[in-house]
């Protein structure tokens, strides 16, 4: 294969793998920010918290990191339910969520990050599962398992979640709560309980995404910062409440960043992605894959 073409194909494929990681990080936000209208700016920090928890658990028990992430998910669900309870009590109930709710999550983000620095220090942490050093080659195309396994698990998790939201009663109630909480009340469903449950799911997803992240790359307590813009960008470009739109946007983001990095150098890749977000916001605020408002 022509080396330029091989570089392009490899950049696209690793971009797709990177994109599925972004999808994992953004899917939880598509629920909290997209469906529940809760601007959880601490979501990337929760992902990093999940990554550190996975490092501790898989290191301590000698378990596979992705399996540890699954075992930790109920704990993260509880954490999410707790955060939502506080958020609802202090902000949502008072109709004060716009500015002060945002400030609340900003503060939560800092508490998580600085807490991690204080406990673990500023060093990078990583895990080394058995498959991490294996790479499949198809001609000129590389397929490292270190990227493929977490990426595929992430997409499978999101698929299962989408199925859950579409088919079960609670799943449909979650989709409904964003549109009309009063109508839910008329069906004798408590919207606050549904939102608490859904926010718990979104934080559990953050924990799972952390497990996938730490397999792919080493993390430090501040790793979440580079994701804040990306995950919000992905959710907005994906049309807010749509999981499939979120995945498509995440894959597009990953490919755009990787192709730029491969041809113009990695220092330019954030500019392309965020430039794209600014353009989307300015000209198509309902998202690339969203319906016209």
């Amino acid at each position: 294969m022509d080396p330029e073409l091989a570089l392009l194909v490899n950049a696209i494929i690793s971009g797709l793998l990177l994109g599925s990681l972004y999808a994992a990080a953004a899917a939880g936000l598509a629920i909290s920010f997209g469906m529940l209208d809760i601007v959880n700016i601490a979501h990337p920090a929760l992902v990093v918290l999940g990554a550190f928890a996975v490092v501790v658990v898989s290191g301590g028990l000698g378990l596979d990191p992705l399996l540890s992430a699954v075992l930790l998910a109920p704990g993260f669900w509880l954490l999410g339910a707790g955060i939502y309870t506080a958020y609802h009590h202090f902000f949502e109930r008072r109709g004060d969520q716009a500015l002060h709710g945002l400030a609340f999550f900003f503060g939560v983000m800092f508490i998580i990050e600085v807490g991690l620095v204080m406990v673990f220090g500023a060093d990078q942490r990583y895990v080394d599962p058995s498959y991490a050093s294996i790479t499949y080659y198809f001609g000129d195309i590389d397929l490292p398992l270190r990227m493929l396994v977490p990426g595929a698990s992430a997409l499978a998790t999101i698929g299962a979640l989408a199925l859950y939201l579409r088919t079960t009663f609670t799943g449909r109630a979650i989709a409904a709560v964003a549109q009309d909480p009063e109508a839910l009340r008329l069906l004798a469903i408590d919207p606050v309980r549904i939102k608490r449950f859904a926010f718990g799911i979104s934080v559990a997803l953050a924990g799972l995404a952390g497990g996938a992240l730490v397999v792919v790359q080493p993390i430090d307590p501040w790793s979440g910062h580079v994701f804040i813009g990306r995950v919000f960008a992905i959710v907005i470009m994906g049309g807010m409440a749509s999981l499939s739109g979120c995945v498509l946007a995440a894959l597009a983001f990953g490919v755009a960043e990787n192709v730029t990095a491969a041809f113009y150098g990695p220092s330019w890749s954030p500019a392309v992605a965020f430039g794209a977000l600014l353009l989307v916001l300015a000209f198509r605020p309902q998202g690339l894959f969203g319906r016209a408002a």
Binding site: F104, F106, F110
Partner: peptide, 15 residues
């Protein structure tokens, strides 16, 4: 620690 203080104070005041 100084960032921790900002975070905690911000959350307390916002709430």
């Amino acid at each position: 620690a100084n960032l921790m203080i900002v975070g905690v104070v911000l959350v307390i005041f916002a709430a």
